[in-house]
């Protein structure tokens, strides 16, 4: 037991000199990784679209004249925001799965759409309420109905204002979609876990996966930013 031993044994907080990097494992599993990426993109896009629809419906319900609609939307939003997404996914797939037969893919899209729908509801609602009251009054004074005032005057302006937080929510969705791997949907994270448990190349694989998600999120935020610029030309 001499000083020399300290160099042979790795220090406890984690620098492991015996782990040799081997990025070739990524090349071996490239097709599987691409398939996982495709699944993640598919699920994310579907959930973003459905979630946005739910968000618009929710925001309209929350700002509507009818108390029943407002209460319904409130319950929906609070329920989703105060439970973890993982629990929601497990509940929909395994819990509700006791009554209806849901495929993991359908359950995932449902769960992710419901989830993002609640947050998008709040974003759009805040956007609607940030539009100056005078806009609605001008619309009404011209004889427009509630619906016309909302869809012709208020919503178009609100959408432009909420593009940054909306983009943020979309990016969150892409990242949160990794949770569907627990119900064995073959998304990027599931494929990665599979590779890691087979090859034990935790560092290389997870680094690559992080890069994949980064590229996806960045691409999305970049396109939203250019959309913002295009719409800003009317300002």
């Amino acid at each position: 037991m001499g000083v020399g031993d300290a160099f042979r044994r790795p220090p406890a907080f984690g620098v492991n000199a015996m782990y040799k990097l081997d990025f070739a494992v990524l090349a071996d599993y490239w097709p599987a990784l691409l398939a996982g990426l495709e699944m993640t993109v598919k699920v994310s896009v579907l959930s973003i679209c459905l979630g946005t629809l739910m968000g618009v419906a929710g925001a309209l319900a929350k700002t509507s004249r009818f108390r029943a609609l407002r209460a319904l939307a409130f319950t929906y939003v609070e329920w989703i925001r105060n439970t973890p997404l993982l629990i929601q996914i497990l509940f929909i797939y395994f819990g509700l799965g006791v009554f209806f037969s849901l495929s993991p893919l359908v359950a995932s899209v449902f769960a992710l759409s419901f989830f993002s729908g609640a947050y998008i509801t709040e974003i759009i609602r805040a956007g609607i309420q940030s539009i100056h009251r005078g806009q609605r009054e001008a619309a009404f004074s011209l004889g427009m109905t509630d619906g016309q005032a909302m869809f012709l005057v208020v919503l178009p302006q609100a959408i432009r204002r909420i593009l940054p937080p909306l983009a943020g929510q979309f990016i969150t969705l892409i990242k949160d979609s990794s949770l569907i791997s627990v119900i064995a949907v073959s998304d990027l994270t599931y494929v990665a876990k599979n590779i890691v448990t087979t090859t034990f190349r935790a560092f290389e694989v997870w680094l690559a996966i992080a890069v994949f998600y980064f590229v996806l999120s960045f691409a999305l935020s970049w396109s939203v930013r250019s959309l913002e610029h295009r719409l800003a030309q009317s300002d």
Partner: peptide, 12 residues
């Protein structure tokens, strides 16, 4: 410092 302290720790 933590690293140095850890290096003083043994395994096994």
């Amino acid at each position: 410092l933590g690293g140095f302290a850890a290096q003083a720790q043994d395994k096994g």
